[in-house]
């Protein structure tokens, strides 16, 4: 059920990209899709009762290996979050540039003005 809810969040973002005409709303849809994918990867790697993959003082390694959640997906998602931030900044910059050139965020209007 939780995976299904995550998929619905992804599809809400997809709906924003497909249906909306406002460029800012399209960018918001893109950001929501990114969030849903990050959350999905971490959800799949989660284990019930798992502890944070940080060693506490006095904890034995063998016990820690049994209890900790998988740290590798977390590292990959951490990288993905930063890279998606770069993507978002670039997309917003292009949107601002389009606004300067055409005076609107409406993609139909931009297409019409382009001729």
């Amino acid at each position: 059920m939780i995976y299904g809810l995550c998929l619905i969040l992804f599809l809400v973002g997809f709906y924003g990209i497909v249906v909306k005409r406002n460029l800012i709303k399209i960018i918001m849809g893109l950001i929501i899709m990114e969030y849903a994918v990050h959350l999905f990867i971490v959800l799949v790697s989660y284990q019930r009762g798992g502890i944070v993959p940080i060693l506490q003082e006095g904890q034995s390694i063998s016990e820690f290996v049994q209890l900790a959640v998988d740290p590798l997906p977390q590292v990959l998602v951490l990288t993905a979050i930063i890279i998606n931030f770069g993507i978002t900044a670039l997309v917003v910059a292009i949107a601002i540039r389009l606004y300067e050139k055409y005076g609107t965020f409406d993609i139909n209007e931009i297409r019409r003005l382009r001729g």
């Binding site: 944070v52 959640v69 930063i82």
Partner: peptide
């Protein structure tokens, strides 16, 4: 992220 045992991700997510 915090509830799923990923505090590093939670911090990064807030900053981003």
């Amino acid at each position: 992220f915090l509830f799923m045992g990923a505090p590093d991700l939670a911090i990064t997510q807030v900053v981003v």
